[in-house]
């Protein structure tokens, strides 16, 4: 929409050609960059569908050589467990992202306020956790013994809920919100909570979408918490299941005890990666619609 108005207001041909050339140049750079990222991804998919022996001879190709689904067949011997793991990961990701975004924003907004007296000390309080950690053993003891969260899905959600890095980015972004609007709301008698939910959050959609995306990726990709706290295979999240499958495959491949079909280790590794990112990519595309320009004061009023 903005482009049409721009065009109408700029009738000179020379500028238009220049602008067009500039845009083409920008596209060219981004296409090259995009391909550098796309090709390895295509290799992963193609190797996952390749015959390993054919691969040794031909090297990595962008199309599957000696097409076979053997790796997937091997991994998906128990499709039920895989589906269960998707469900666990889905639930953890949704809850974690939702509450994480909420609590992090609720913490970041006061930290962004010049008139909040504890701004400095609390910012430091948040930041400090980014640098120092007590290590795995005390963390493990705390969660299993004192919080009693072993084999509990909350153990996969709570530890990452408030992450210093995200809070500080949110704070920076919140601090740049136009003050006039907030003042206006205050004069109307709006309380802090109302201001936060009705003005701050809606105005911050791009950064919330970004941090939301980070939360999604963090929860989606995590296997570490499960390694620590989950023994019950019903509660295995996806990445942990894949991690365990890969380690088991490597172990089996190097310690075969009986005759059998050799396990396609390398293509299995790639197939596991495909199973891991496929759905995450889908979420990514879904979230993209929140990256919209021009959520301005005017836009909000309308």
């Amino acid at each position: 929409m903005t482009t049409t108005t721009q065009r109408r207001s700029r009738p000179w041909n020379r500028y238009r050609t220049q602008a067009w050339l500039g845009k083409a140049f920008v596209h060219a750079i981004l296409i090259v960059l995009g391909l550098a990222c796309l090709i390895p991804m295509m290799l992963v998919i193609s190797i996952s569908l390749s015959d390993e022996l054919a691969l040794v001879k031909s090297g990595y190709q962008l199309y599957p050589v000696g097409f076979t689904t053997a790796a997937y067949d091997y991994i998906l011997q128990q499709p039920g467990q895989m589906l269960q793991a998707y469900a666990v990961t889905g639930l953890v990701t949704i809850l974690g992202t939702g509450f994480g975004l909420l609590f992090s924003s609720m913490l970041a907004w006061p930290l962004a306020r010049q008139d909040f007296r504890l701004r400095g000390p609390l910012s430091f309080y948040v930041f400090f956790t980014l640098l120092f950690s007590g290590g795995m053993v005390p963390f493990y003891i705390l969660v299993t013994r004192y919080l009693g969260l072993k084999d509990n899905i909350l153990a996969l959600i709570l530890p990452y809920l408030v992450t210093a890095w995200y809070v500080l980015i949110l704070r920076t972004s919140f601090a740049q919100l136009p003050t006039e609007l907030l003042d206006a709301a205050r004069i109307d008698g709006a309380g802090e909570w109302r201001i936060f939910f009705r003005i701050v959050m809606p105005l911050s959609k791009p950064v919330l979408a970004t941090i939301g995306l980070f939360y999604v990726l963090r929860y989606w990709n995590d296997w570490f918490l499960a390694l620590l706290f989950i023994n019950d295979s019903v509660l295995y999240p996806l990445q942990y299941l894949l991690y365990v499958l890969m380690r088991n495959i490597s172990f089996l491949a190097s310690n075969p005890q009986t005759t059998g079909v050799p396990i396609p280790t390398q293509s299995a590794r790639m197939a596991l990666a495909v199973l891991a990112f496929g759905p995450a990519l889908f979420t990514f595309l879904l979230l993209q619609k929140y990256f919209v320009r021009g959520i301005t004061i005017g836009g909000l009023k309308g």
Partner: peptide, 28 residues
């Protein structure tokens, strides 16, 4: 391992325990 299976190696050194041939055949 994939290279061995594809015939790109001719031998390995290994713990030659009794019955090892069966395991090596399964692997390679």
């Amino acid at each position: 391992d994939a290279m061995f299976r594809a015939g790109q190696f001719a031998m390995s050194y290994h713990v030659e325990k009794p019955g090892n041939d069966v395991e090596a055949e399964a692997r390679y």
